[in-house]
């Protein structure tokens, strides 16, 4: 157990505690850090870039709670109701998930390109437009994501007692009714877990924004993680960036705590 604790302390715990400390300083990453109390946090509260990024994270969270969840639930439920090709569909849906984020980004950059892709046909510059850029990046991220949800939901749905469906069918319940009254309640722990994880990951999301737009055009896709990255490594404001990191940690902390409480109360094994 010792190696695990040591490596965790070095890579995760130690730097995390340092980050807490630095968030109260004016550290630039190289020189000495001067304690400035809550100054970074006060500045954050009035920072328009920060609020802009936070707002995008909220929109991003809503998108990921709705679109991939719906696709994942539908895909998984439909797969439980077919007899043939279930494994084939499952593998195919999962495939985009194993493709690296940089490749996924390139695939869609080519496809949507305003020069040779869909963008040319529709006369739209998806990634260059103030209004379209954020939904486009979320869409690309979702392409690589929803198949994972299908697989996890499918695993949960296959654990549902088949007798329940049989009884419901005898009572005349159709597929939709069965989904609402049997499937969804039965997979509630998985559903909640993925919902809460979706919130956490939505606030951490980095790769696709960084690769596709770097937060642009003009901040239209800026999220907390890209803001943090810029403050830390371009503006060399490590202290301020740490404060942004603290806000992100706080949000996921609240979500994890909520999850642990719910799990305990409902006695879930998840």
């Amino acid at each position: 157990m010792l190696p695990l604790i040591a490596i965790n302390a070095l890579v995760v715990l130690g730097p995390s505690l340092l980050a807490v400390y630095y968030s109260f300083t004016d550290w630039n990453g190289i020189g000495t850090a001067k304690w400035i109390g809550l100054h970074n946090y006060i500045e954050l509260a009035g920072d328009a870039e920060f609020r802009n990024a936070l707002w995008h994270n909220i929109l991003w969270t809503i998108f990921f709670l709705v679109v991939p969840m719906a696709m994942g639930l539908f895909g998984a439920y439909a797969l439980t109701r077919i007899r043939r090709f279930r494994l084939l569909f499952r593998v195919a849906y999962f495939l985009p998930y194993i493709v690296a984020s940089v490749i996924t980004a390139a695939i869609w950059e080519n496809l949507l390109s305003p020069d040779v892709g869909i963008g040319e046909v529709l006369h739209l510059n998806f990634l260059g437009s103030q209004t379209l850029a954020l939904p486009t990046v979320a869409f690309v991220n979702n392409w690589a994501w929803w198949g994972f949800l299908v697989v996890v939901f499918l695993a949960a749905m296959q654990g549902v007692n088949p007798n329940l469906y049989e009884a419901a069918a005898l009572d005349g319940a159709g597929p939709f009714r069965q989904f609402w009254s049997i499937t969804l309640p039965s997979i509630q722990p998985t559903f909640m877990f993925l919902g809460l994880m979706t919130i956490i990951w939505s606030f951490l999301s980095f790769d696709y924004v960084y690769v596709l737009t770097q937060g642009g055009p003009a901040g239209a896709t800026d999220v907390l993680s890209t803001l943090l990255y810029r403050e830390a490594f371009a503006s060399l404001r490590a202290g301020y960036a740490s404060a942004v990191g603290m806000v992100m940690a706080l949000i996921s902390g609240v979500v994890v705590a909520a999850y642990l409480v719910i799990r305990k109360r409902k006695d879930w094994a998840v």
């Binding site: 157990m1 965790n8 890579v11 995760v12 715990l13 130690g14 730097p15 995390s16 340092l18 980050a19 630095y22 990453g29 190289i30 994880m197 956490i200 606030f203 951490l204 980095f206 907390l224 993680s225 943090l228 990255y229 830390a232 490594f233 490590a238 960036a241 740490s242 990191g245 603290m246 992100m248 940690a249 996921s252 994890v256 642990l260």
Partner: peptide
């Protein structure tokens, strides 16, 4: 081992911790 339940929770939390949170200190470390 005693306290292994707490340790499991710690591992769960630490594997869902935002990398970005400790990225900056880790970088300079």
């Amino acid at each position: 081992l005693p306290g292994s339940g707490t340790f499991i929770t710690y591992l769960l939390v630490s594997s869902s911790l935002p990398t970005q949170m400790f990225l900056v200190p880790l970088f300079y470390l």
